[in-house]
Amino acid sequence: RRRVRAILPYTKVPDTDEISFLKGDMFIVHNELEDGWMWVTNLRTDEQGLIVEDLVEEVG
């Protein structure tokens, strides 16, 4: 499975499927959606939700 790491922190918009995260958080990518969004699991918090790919980098 594809893994990505947050390069910046992010605070979710209330009442959306987004998740908040810290710089350095690792995610497993489940689905890549339109307009650069990804459905992921945050490995630190075990939370699932949407993040935008501009805020993460690939992990080898």
Rank of each mutant, 00 (worst) to 15 (best):
I28F: 08
G49T: 01
V52Q: 11
L8R: 10
N42A: 09
T41Q: 10
R2D: 05
V52R: 10
E18G: 05
D35M: 11
V56S: 03
W39C: 13
G49L: 01
F21Q: 01
E58W: 05
L43V: 14
V40W: 00
M26P: 04
V4W: 05
T45F: 01
L8G: 13
R1F: 14
E57T: 09
G24D: 09
I28R: 05
T41N: 04
D46A: 15
V40F: 00
D54P: 06
D17P: 10
E18R: 04
L50D: 01
P9W: 06
V59E: 08
P14H: 08
D46Y: 15
E34N: 15
G49Y: 01
M38F: 10
G24T: 03
G36S: 06
I7W: 06
V40N: 00
R44A: 07
R5Q: 10
G49P: 00
L33C: 15
R2P: 08
D17W: 10
I19D: 00
W39G: 02
L8F: 14
E18A: 04
D15Q: 11
Q48V: 09
T45Y: 01
D17Q: 11
D54A: 15
T11K: 09
I28G: 03
T41I: 08
I51D: 00
I19C: 03
H30R: 05
F27A: 01
D15E: 09
R2F: 05
N42I: 03
L50N: 04
R3N: 09
E58C: 10
S20W: 02
K12G: 10
D54W: 13
N31I: 13
E57S: 07
W37L: 10
L55F: 14
F27W: 01
R5G: 02
Q48W: 08
V40D: 01
R44T: 07
F21D: 00
R5V: 11
V13K: 12
E58T: 14
V59P: 06
E34F: 14
E58Y: 06
E32F: 08
T45I: 02
D25N: 00
G36M: 04
D17T: 11
N31Y: 13
G24W: 06
S20P: 03
I28L: 11
N31G: 09
R5L: 07
M26R: 05
W39L: 10
Y10I: 03
